[in-house]
Computed example of a mutant assay.
Amino acid sequence: MEKEVIRNRFEIGEVEVYNFLIEYIPTHKDEILEEWMKRMKSDEDERFINVVSDQVFVNTSSEFVNVILSRLTDSSENYNEKLTDFAERLVRLGWPLTFVTSGIATLNKVIFEKVNETKLFSSEKKLEYFTIFENWMTPINNEIIKAYNSTWERTVSLQKIALQELSAPLIPVFEKISVMPLVGTIDTERAKLIMENLLNGVVKHRAEVVLIDITGVPVVDTMVAHHIIQAADAVRLVGAKCMLVGIRPEIAQTIVNLGINLSQIITTSTLRKGIEKALEITNRKIVKWEGAL
């Protein structure tokens, strides 16, 4: 019976604190924001603060407080929508997670100190208030961080897909001749994308000769060579020829030392020589025109 009475008293106190916070925070929102921004600007990385305009900083900070309040005043659906929108806004603005977590901790501290200054709670009630306040803020903090991480991961994933699509384009340079310039390291995942783009591009552009330009590939090892040979074989299966261009002296030496067999692939040292060879294959050539304009 005694335990039940104590539990009911705590629940009543908890409701009172919640109701007080819901009323207090909006009423003192401006001074809370002012103090919060003052502390964040003094404690955080100035390089990040300087690239964020004051107006954006104020608006985002205000939205932060609104999200916290909506946790108690709105329905779960509305709160989740606001939380997702806010997290996406933070990611778009480029706010780092360290700044977000630091901002949450600082805002908690400011709100607690402001309420404590009101002296509305007796010494005996302060510990209870602190416990209730922590119990209220902790899940909100975790939800904001979780939403931020989820949004960030989704954004990075979309950017990665977009970058991959642009990292292996097949470009038609002449009728029946296309070039695929490769830049950077080639791993298994990217090799798969290269193969897909290559085959789709050959069919789409009706290419008879495809030049794979590896001028921008820093290292050609056994794995990279294997993927190139596979790509050349696949191109032949759809009725086109594959050329490997942009082979630098150090790359040629590496290929020889590794014993890689590229005898089935036409190779040239530069893209220009490769295009000239491709024109020959398609019964054309580049000539100097002597006619006057």
Rank of each mutant, 00 (worst) to 15 (best):
residue 51 V to G: 01
residue 239 G to F: 07
residue 49 I to E: 04
residue 235 V to G: 07
residue 80 N to G: 03
residue 285 K to V: 04
residue 12 I to Q: 13
residue 26 P to K: 13
residue 6 I to P: 00
residue 28 H to T: 02
residue 136 W to V: 15
residue 18 Y to R: 15
residue 199 L to W: 04
residue 244 L to I: 09
residue 219 V to C: 03
residue 272 R to I: 02
residue 19 N to S: 13
residue 213 D to I: 12
residue 91 V to W: 05
residue 269 S to F: 04
residue 219 V to G: 07
residue 67 V to Q: 09
residue 238 V to C: 02
residue 19 N to F: 02
residue 172 P to Y: 02
residue 223 M to Q: 11
residue 133 F to R: 07
residue 31 E to D: 12
residue 260 I to F: 00
residue 285 K to W: 02
residue 147 A to H: 04
residue 66 N to G: 07
residue 74 D to T: 10
residue 137 M to V: 10
residue 21 L to V: 09
residue 7 R to V: 12
residue 38 K to W: 06
residue 120 L to M: 15
residue 44 E to C: 12
residue 28 H to M: 08
residue 292 A to S: 13
residue 149 N to P: 03
residue 181 P to I: 09
residue 241 K to H: 08
residue 209 V to G: 01
residue 65 V to H: 04
residue 275 I to H: 00
residue 181 P to E: 02
residue 137 M to R: 14
residue 268 T to H: 15
residue 186 I to E: 07
residue 35 E to N: 13
residue 177 I to D: 00
residue 182 L to I: 13
residue 152 W to G: 02
residue 203 V to L: 10
residue 216 G to I: 06
residue 8 N to E: 13
residue 202 V to R: 00
residue 217 V to G: 12
residue 205 H to M: 11
residue 266 I to D: 06
residue 55 Q to S: 15
residue 238 V to W: 00
residue 216 G to V: 08
residue 186 I to R: 10
residue 158 L to M: 14
residue 13 G to I: 07
residue 217 V to Q: 09
residue 143 E to P: 11
residue 155 T to H: 10
residue 196 E to L: 07
residue 10 F to L: 13
residue 147 A to D: 04
residue 112 F to V: 02
residue 242 C to R: 02
residue 52 V to C: 03
residue 65 V to W: 02
residue 153 E to M: 09
residue 29 K to N: 04
residue 111 I to M: 03
residue 160 K to S: 13
residue 22 I to E: 08
residue 115 V to S: 05
residue 113 E to T: 11
residue 240 A to L: 03
residue 275 I to A: 00
